[in-house]
Structures are given as structure tokens and as C-alpha cells.
Design a protein around this nucleic acid. Sequence first.
DNA 1: CCATCTTACTTGTGAAATGCAAGTTAAAAT
DNA 2: ATTTTAACTTGCATTTCACAAGTAAGATGG
Lengths: 145, 145
Amino acid sequence: MPKKKPSPKRRSGCPLNASVEILGDRWSLLIIRDMMLRGFRSYKEFLESYERIATNILADRLRKLVAHGIITTEQDLSDGRKLIYSLTRKGIDLAPVFTEMVLWAAGHEDTGNQALVRLIQKDKEKFLAEVRQRWAEKRVRSTAN
Amino acid sequence: MPKKKPSPKRRSGCPLNASVEILGDRWSLLIIRDMMLRGFRSYKEFLESYERIATNILADRLRKLVAHGIITTEQDLSDGRKLIYSLTRKGIDLAPVFTEMVLWAAGHEDTGNQALVRLIQKDKEKFLAEVRQRWAEKRVRSTAN
DNA sequence: CCATCTTACTTGTGAAATGCAAGTTAAAAT
DNA sequence: ATTTTAACTTGCATTTCACAAGTAAGATGG
């Protein structure tokens, strides 16, 4: 069973409010997207991602995501400078949230990445299964690359 | 067909980024929740909602939600002071995003409102159909209450 | 019909979060 | 031994936020 924190002082007990307090900012979900969909695992990769997050903000968000149990860090065994960031189960479980946010924006805003959108539209469940599968593989070879 | 704006200057064309730029803050989704699930339609109701949004922030968020085509306003015919806020199709289409955010938080955080959570868990599609149905009814009697 | 109340805001101000540039430290590469 | 690289931190100006108070137009009660 998944561990549930004894929630700190939240504005309310509503589960939507909990999600918003944890993920409701302009960067957290993009970092998770980079991990889940693009396979990014290092600070440098996140920094160089297309939306150009500031380095202090990135450090802060990674710290918070770790604190919330959404990602974890481990040392890279072959390079003492590197840290490898991984999604936890809790992080991977955000995949359905992403999927719906992507579909919503694709349906109502003028966006790019139609390849991803069509992939999701074609078979949502299959897409989710693939994301989970891909990540399960990664966890095994955690120090690879 | 849904109208798509020729997107202003976004940080990137990624649909997830679009969603995050529009909805990624601590209040917007809660306002939409209050409309979608609690049937709130006036400034005063939003102000008095449990999480206690500040009045200037509420005014700002309502303005932005209107600008993004997620909600609309109309005058209350029976009370000249009142404005009635309504969800547009674009706003109602956020229901699946909500649903997944609620399920995620309910599964990984210590949250309340288990009645809502169980309702969603029992049959997600039925829940979504009901939300859409309920709103369709409301649009008809827009000045009621 | 006039004072009071209500609704939907705006304004002011201090505190916190954000963005940008530059600096730091330990480890790796040359 | 010197230069690079990775993962940050620090400082500072700007923006956003929260809280309190104020306002204007419409409704309500006597």
C-alpha cells in the first residue's frame, strides 16, 4: 500500500487542493514531464530543457519534489559529480494527470507536438501502459548512461 | 469545432506547457472546482470558499479565466449588482484533469472528502458524464437562484 | 426616499516568490 | 597541473501574493 503523509497544514482537506498545493506552479510538472516522457535524469538536462528554467528555481523544485516523495536521487556510480533523479511510484502515477492536461490543451489551444497528442488520442490506456513500462525498465539499469 | 487561440508568446509549444501556463497556480483550478462540483457562480461564493482566496487574487484569476475562454460572465437579470459566472465548454472539458488530480492525491496524500473520491473511483466515466450533464442543465436556467 | 446593507470589486503595503547573473565546490577530463 | 563539467548557491532587482481597508453601484427596510 502507498504511504500517505499525515499532511502538513493544508488550506483544506480537498484532494484537489492537495494536488494544487504540491504541483500548482509553473515548473514542477514540466520537470516531471522531462523525466517521464523525455527520460531526463540529471540537473543539467533539466536546465537545458526548452522552457529554460532558472537554476535556483530548478534546485528548489527538485528539493520540493524529493520532499514530497515524487522523485528520488542517487549518486551516479561512474561519475562522482552526477546525481541521478528518478521518478517514484507516486511520480509515475502522475501520468494520467499529464495525459489529460495534454489532451485538454491540444483540444483548446494552439499547441505543437502533435505526434505526442495523436499518440495519446489514439489509445490513452496503451500510452499510459507504455510510460509505466518504460520507467520500470529504467529503474533496473539506474546507473546506465 | 473548438476555437483555438493563436497562442501568445509561450515558453514552448508543448501542450503540457500550455496547460501549466494557463492553470499552473494555486487558485485557478480551485475556482473551477467550485463551479464544476459545488455549483458556485458568484464572486461572493468563491470568496467564501473554504481555502479563503484573497479578494484581489480572485478578481485577477476570474479576469484571466475569462480571457482564456474558460469561463464567461453575464448580468444577473434580477439583481443588477450580481454577475453570474459560467463554465464554457473549454472549462467543462477540464473535468478529466480534475478527476485524475483528485485520484492521484487521494492515492498518495492524506486527504478528506472520501465521498467524492469513492464516487470517482467507482466509475470515472459515469462521474464525468454526470458533471457534464449537471452543467448542461445549469446553462439553461442561467439566471435561476 | 433615505440610511443601511450587499455585491463586486480596487487600492495600498509589506512579504514572499521569481528571474537573472555571477560565483562556488568537488570531481573529471586533458 | 590546468581546464571543464556538474550541481548547485548567493545576491539583487522585479513580480506576484496576502492581508487590510476602501469604493461605487444597486438592493433593501422602515
